[in-house]
Amino acid sequence: MTQQAREVFWLTRIMRIRSGPLEYSRRLWLRLVVAATFLLLYAPIITLMVFSFNNSRRNVVWRGFTWKYYEKAWNNDGLFEAFTNSLTIAFVSTLLSTIIGAMVAVMLWRFRFPGKAAYEGLMALPIVVPEICMGVAMMVFFARIGWPADLPWPLNLSAITIAHIAFSFPFVAIVVRARLAGFNRELEEASHDLGASEWQTFWNVVFPYMKPGLIGGALLAFTLSLDDFVITFFTSGPNTVTFPVKVYSMVRFSVTPEVNAASTVLVLITVVMTAIAMRFNKPQDSA
């Protein structure tokens, strides 16, 4: 490095450090606060994931890499059954809540009707009511109406699935409606002018436009269902354990690498699903 280049290098360095009055992002203390926050936010989760590969039951010191606890978690019948239950519930709940939520969204987007504001308020209730209240309400409801508890698989999961749909479809409705808000109404008129019926217009013009919203809403519903603990905890019986409920019962007893492995799998599934959902929810991609 020549002398001149070195001077230029240091000058730019110094210029950078002398920040302007509104360049708060260059303030050292602010950077430290942000770095510390992110560190505290992520360190526990990352250590949890890393130590699921640790070759030791005691979770503190690193003793080499192993897949052992993933194998153990996989061969744990209770855990595997809970995982199958969770996926089954999530699939059915996603399918139904996407259909129901999308229909609500289309209805709210298209029509004016008396009491619409109140209706929208009611629709938002499942989103704002504390989870614990909804959980106990579901538990009481299914116990009181005598919902059969000893049905064969997969019908024994029906109560949980119904509860999951109840809290998922309003979210789908919001996502789909946000998508529809960007729809150009003139396209609909053009379709009518060109002789298409209501039905044809809906399937060939409106529906294709809704699709990213539908996929985004469906993925959201899937992760909501897969992740839910509180409401499922109260709705589930002794024979209908879901993955989070099973992990909860394991966590209550001990901190083991096996639980770490199960948690890591759950985290990876939801993070990947949500990342895909985010891709579909980007507001600007009208194509």
């Binding site: 526990p44 130590f51 989070p244």
Partner: peptide
């Protein structure tokens, strides 16, 4: 970085804290 924790199960995040805070 701020949104990512929302996607991680609350149970898992709480469990992660147990490993941080317990006596050992």
């Amino acid at each position: 970085g701020v949104i990512l924790p929302f996607w991680i199960n609350m149970l898992v995040r709480t469990y992660a804290l147990i490993a941080v805070f317990r006596t050992r």
